[in-house]
Design a protein around this nucleic acid. Structure first.
Length: 269
DNA sequence: CTTGTCACCTGAGCGC
DNA sequence: TGCGCTCAGGTGACAA
């Protein structure tokens, strides 16, 4: 499960089931995810879960011995089940808990990850990430300043995790539409008001999606308990050729960096 | 350093 | 029904 709101919704969904529980077992059925699941992960067996946090699209399960990093890639999802629930196709990993439940990772495409970081160390994958989009560090001043002298298209710039994390293809398309900015515009050509508007719309679109994830949040213990990927009404994503919701001109669809990019040539400049 | 491309993997949908 | 092709929500590793 991909974009930041779904990851945050997953965090909130599994939190009540995992908080304070001790990890009793870690069953790896398929270690070949994006990277092999390391054997060191077994160091967490016997450890109480102290907290579950999120950095970018990584979920971090904290213990006194270290942190388990979970990433859902393009197709991963988490559920909380009873420990005897028979594993189904693509159920690669179970984290057994003292209350008889398990946290189970399912990921058909195996672009996800389960990694380990010893206590006190920051995992290398997290070391050079940009700011969280919903925190104050991601501001108009920041975006304007960091985009100077950058010729890359603003959409690719936004999707660069060194600039800001958590803005994936869907929300990059949506935020640029809501800001009236052409996704092909070189980042350096953003004006200060545009940078400010863009920061506001990114925060707004992500916050609304998280709120909706919250309202539709199931308890993560049912087969259909996963949050819907598209809880939020989308203006442009997946709507190439359809009329623009504002001006009714047909929406353009192009590819930028192998990613589908939808925008309105009339409303976005 | 910046930018663009490739790779990882499975499954769904489409045209034939 | 089946085959081959394209595409899909991510992102690190490279090459230029």
């Amino acid at each position: 499960m991909p974009e930041l709101p779904e990851v945050e919704t997953s965090r909130r969904g599994i939190l009540p089931h995992l908080q304070g529980q001790t990890i009793t077992q870690i069953d790896v059925r398929q270690p070949q995810l994006r990277w092999p699941i390391p054997d060191e992960i077994q160091a967490l067996v016997g450890e109480p879960i102290l907290a579950i946090s999120r950095r970018s699209k990584y979920l971090l399960i904290h213990t006194a011995k270290g942190v388990m990093l979970l990433h859902l890639g393009m197709s991963g999802s988490l559920r909380v089940l009873l420990q005897y629930a028979p594993p189904e196709k693509h159920d690669h990993l179970d984290i057994g808990l003292a209350n008889g439940k398990i946290l189970r990772l399912n990921d058909p495409r195996r672009f996800g990850a389960c990694l380990f970081s010893p206590v006190g160390e920051v995992h290398p994958l997290l070391a050079s990430l940009g700011p969280e989009p919903l925190l104050e560090a991601f501001s108009a001043d920041y975006l304007y300043t960091i985009s100077r002298n950058r010729r890359v298209a603003i959409k690719s710039f936004l999707m660069n995790s060194k600039i800001v994390v958590g803005v994936g293809n869907i929300y990059a398309n949506e935020a640029l539409f809501l800001s009236g900015i052409d996704p092909r515009k070189p980042a350096a050509k953003l004006t200060k008001p545009q940078a400010s508007h863009l920061v506001d719309t990114i925060k707004g679109v992500l916050e609304r999606a998280i709120e909706q994830g919250g309202t539709t949040l199931k308890d993560f213990t049912q087969v259909d308990g996963r949050p819907g990927y598209f809880a939020q009404a989308l203006n442009v994503y997946g709507r190439g050729g359809e009329p623009c919701p504002v001006c009714e001109q047909p929406l353009s669809e192009i590819r930028m960096g192998q990613r589908s990019t939808v925008f309105c040539t009339h409303c976005q400049r």
